[in-house]
Simulated assay, not measured.
Amino acid sequence: MAKALEQPVPGITVGHALLARANGAAQPVDRIVHDGDTINIAADGNFGVRLLGVDAPEVSFELPRNPNFPDFPKGFVDIGDPAWTTFLTDPFAKGYQDLELRSALRAHLLTRLGPQTAANHAAHAAPATRALKDMIKLDITEQGLDETTFKIRLAFAHEILDRYGRLLCYVNRDQKQPPRPPAYNERLLAAGHVVPYFIWPNVDPFVRQQDRVADAVPAPGDVRALAESGALGRARQAVRQARDAGLGLWDHAGPLMLLPFELRFLAQRRAPDRYLIDLSDNAKELLHPQSYFRVPNPEDRLFVNAEHAPLFGAKGWSVPPM
């Protein structure tokens, strides 16, 4: 499917558009040009949307190349493929591109890796995918609509696009009359189908955002108010309840072994590069990106992109070198 936004090369995002439409018909240039610096357009293609605050087990991903495994399939490969079993049994085997990890993180990962890791990941990915499909289909039915008339509401936080050109959103059915159900992001967390993946400053789209991202930096030791209120507070509580109940990927008999972002950085051969705040503590320091596992519960992890770390340092937080 054609994309309205895409990244032809890393770091470059481009869009594709048409002249604005009215009732499906293209509008004349005289109508779509508002003034010398403003025009109205319609997207030419589809938007990819990445749900904020959640991370689902991967259905497929690209395997790293290794001359010792020349038969590894290329492109996005189903996690159930035997090649993934080989890779996740030992992603540090000879022949892969070097991945420089601290010894403590490597030791942590080794407790989660093995012949069953890929099958475990695939087993949890399927219900998560099915759950989101079912939620959307149920909303369509409940509203008495069909796939041609159903509308989606997107709520944005501070950042609009990710590095792949996808929209970063809280996603829900479009509904004018209250009460509106929780966003799909929150519903998936409550059902235990996804892992929380909170990345500052995209933690709550339903409050007035500061004019500058620097103004959103909490003071050292004052993160509890952020952690326990709004969308972030509701999401953290939902995750704790799902885990206690053994729902979804928290299944007490067979929980998710490897987190989705761990699978990605192992496959991409790129060490974690987001700092971390421990939301369970009156934190005054950012933890090193490779120390994320020292915060045991994922709902207590608030990740901070490296480019935002200096803002925290300027506010008085302790920031370790990368």
Rank of each mutant, 00 (worst) to 15 (best):
127 P>W: 07
72 F>L: 11
79 I>E: 08
135 M>A: 15
59 V>H: 00
97 Q>T: 12
127 P>K: 03
144 G>V: 01
151 K>D: 09
81 D>H: 15
133 K>D: 03
75 G>S: 10
148 T>G: 12
53 G>A: 02
117 T>Q: 02
160 I>K: 14
138 L>I: 02
124 H>A: 05
84 W>F: 04
136 I>G: 04
94 K>Q: 15
71 D>P: 02
70 P>F: 12
157 A>W: 07
157 A>P: 03
56 A>M: 00
54 V>A: 15
157 A>T: 03
62 E>W: 04
137 K>N: 06
54 V>D: 13
104 A>C: 04
97 Q>F: 06
63 L>Q: 08
140 I>M: 14
131 A>D: 03
161 L>D: 02
96 Y>T: 00
50 R>C: 08
41 I>T: 00
53 G>T: 01
44 D>L: 11
134 D>S: 09
102 R>M: 11
109 L>A: 09
44 D>K: 13
125 A>H: 01
53 G>M: 03
60 S>Y: 02
91 P>D: 07
129 T>D: 00
92 F>Q: 08
50 R>D: 01
102 R>F: 07
117 T>F: 02
43 A>E: 03
73 P>I: 04
109 L>I: 00
144 G>H: 04
91 P>L: 03
153 R>M: 05
112 R>H: 14
66 N>M: 04
41 I>E: 01
107 A>T: 03
125 A>N: 06
55 D>W: 11
116 Q>N: 12
65 R>M: 11
101 L>S: 12
141 T>M: 10
41 I>A: 14
62 E>F: 13
94 K>G: 08
163 R>C: 05
82 P>M: 09
87 F>A: 02
67 P>E: 09
133 K>H: 05
58 E>I: 05
108 H>K: 04
155 A>T: 07
158 H>V: 06
159 E>I: 00
92 F>P: 04
85 T>L: 11
107 A>C: 05
156 F>C: 04
145 L>S: 14
88 L>W: 08
52 L>S: 15
127 P>Q: 13
58 E>A: 10
96 Y>S: 10
136 I>S: 07
146 D>I: 02
66 N>F: 05
44 D>P: 10
57 P>Y: 05
